[in-house]
Design a binder for these strands. Sequence first.
DNA 1: AATCGCTCCCAAAGCGCTTTGGATGCTGCA
DNA 2: TGCAGCATCCAAAGCGCTTTGGGAGCGATT
Lengths: 347, 347
Amino acid sequence: MPPITLKQLAAELGLSPTTVSRALNGYPEVNEETRARVTKAATRHHYRPNTRAKALATGRSMAIGHIIPISTQHEIVNPIFADFIAGAGEVYSREGYDMVLSLVPDADQTRAYREMRAKGSVDGIIVHGPKEDDPRIALLDELGMPFVVHGRATGAKVPYSWVDVNNTRAFQRATEFLLDLGHRRIALVNGLEFMDFAIRRRHGYEAALAAHGLAPDPALMVQGEMTEAQGAHAARAMLALPSPPSAFLCSSLLSAMGVRREVEAHGLRLGRDVSIVTHDDELGYLRNGEAEPIFTATRSSVREAGRRCAQMLLGIIADPASAPRHELLEAVLVVGRSTGPAPVTPR
Amino acid sequence: MPPITLKQLAAELGLSPTTVSRALNGYPEVNEETRARVTKAATRHHYRPNTRAKALATGRSMAIGHIIPISTQHEIVNPIFADFIAGAGEVYSREGYDMVLSLVPDADQTRAYREMRAKGSVDGIIVHGPKEDDPRIALLDELGMPFVVHGRATGAKVPYSWVDVNNTRAFQRATEFLLDLGHRRIALVNGLEFMDFAIRRRHGYEAALAAHGLAPDPALMVQGEMTEAQGAHAARAMLALPSPPSAFLCSSLLSAMGVRREVEAHGLRLGRDVSIVTHDDELGYLRNGEAEPIFTATRSSVREAGRRCAQMLLGIIADPASAPRHELLEAVLVVGRSTGPAPVTPR
DNA sequence: AATCGCTCCCAAAGCGCTTTGGATGCTGCA
DNA sequence: TGCAGCATCCAAAGCGCTTTGGGAGCGATT
């Protein structure tokens, strides 16, 4: 049998739909006694207002859209995605919002955003994986759709709301940390550098080197998908260099694991012969140790970022006229067993 | 400005909403010439019918629900989840469906499913992570909501539709493969054994041992969250045993990576001193090598499983009276460099 | 006694769409 | 000429809810 409707509930109680609606939505103009009767009957029947009807009547759909780009350039689903969603989802379910996901090819992005707007199925949108000069921001602004960007897009022309980790600072500090330990040949195993976050990380790395009068060595810098294989490949190539790095700075725990594997395969000891610092998104399924961190890392929970993004978006929806909001999360540098002073005698 | 509505479009064209609706939905009783005019105007205005209104009118919401359990027992978001979603999402967007995600604590599962039904926001549901005797199946059956289970629930009383990998067979074959190589001390590093898939994997492992007259050794069997740390811990403990395993059978690539690390830390060589076979879900961000597999593995794409689940569910929605459907995917055993004959002389 | 101000409830419109049940005009055939 | 039949279009109802604009009843105020 189909779910019970407001009208049926009202009929059963001998009340008008109006009164039942008001009783359930907490309006004051209804007797507390009748309200009690109504709520009791509602729970007994597992009554829930039909969202489609409610959305149509109120003009608010109580849903947030996440459009996930299916890139042809890198055919992987972003590994941090699940955790981000988990964080955002917490907030949504607490606030009574649904989350609607849409996976769309890179080429159809514009159409997808337009469509979400026109179909009216969501009240706001979270933008994932901003690129350096991301056209989506201008589009959403033009469409007048509330949105929050997870990350930033350096080239964006219009003001917009975002939540981001201070990637520049994090990688600058990590690099400084290694420099202070005496390392001079520091490799950067970065994400794809058309992604905004990867660009910022490189800037941080370069800034720290520059502050010590060091020029970045292209042979020690790679970008790519952040996988275990990437780390292993990069390490293999670099350790074979005439003047190999004594330290690696990785953009992801997976890359770091690949580097570690290759380092150990060379018979080198981590934290003694070679140091590794990595960024750690604190993914649920990929922990950097338990009590004590394994890798020295710049740590920032992507799940927390998900929560903040969601919270911010709901705030904007509640007050659309407010000024754009920003939240810059600082990563903490946690010291594990993967770093140590640079070896004195070059190998 | 708000998106254009059917009525506005009709007014602009000097037609009735009825005709415009019919023109756009391909009904025959409209002049092809007018249909052309209508479609042209519609595309020009980026017109899309409001989903909420359409859903209300048709009784179909064109959305599929995924309820992700947020377990208190294992506070991790299932790492395979993102890939599964990616597969399902492909199908949905091709068929014009939306995907709505709901993250709910284990305790609220029943309420969540009831609510999804009552709110009428989805036409069907995909059930994730079935446990041995999962109450959700009976509930959904009772609610009369179309659903497909990703995996199976051994104890379920009612018939239901599912898509699953033949976990039993996969692990039986993997174990046989190791036995054929002469291994007799084979460790099982399994997922949490209240999950149905983990139970089946253990059965497969035990069956193969039994077929060779071997009794399973509890000291060589662990279950837990499938992380790198789990693999490393398990390997460390087992390699310290008086009679250590010569081979490991892992439930996930992450566990296998942990085992590998510990094996190598012991100065043992993979594929020579110790063998590893792992299950490989072919996750986008965690590949088992590129052209050539690194680990010998039972391979089955979870993204493909997502596609199949979605497809099956849409089929059921189109024909709700049809008999329950099942799809059993066979994992292939791919041989990599992590396995070899059992060492003749015990270490 | 007349009026005011509450409290508590209801009828009806409307959200944007689909769909039923005609209307209208024209062609073709007896 | 008259009428069935067809091709096109439209008015209006209805999906399940919220919300506007009262309206009845009743004690309090003047």
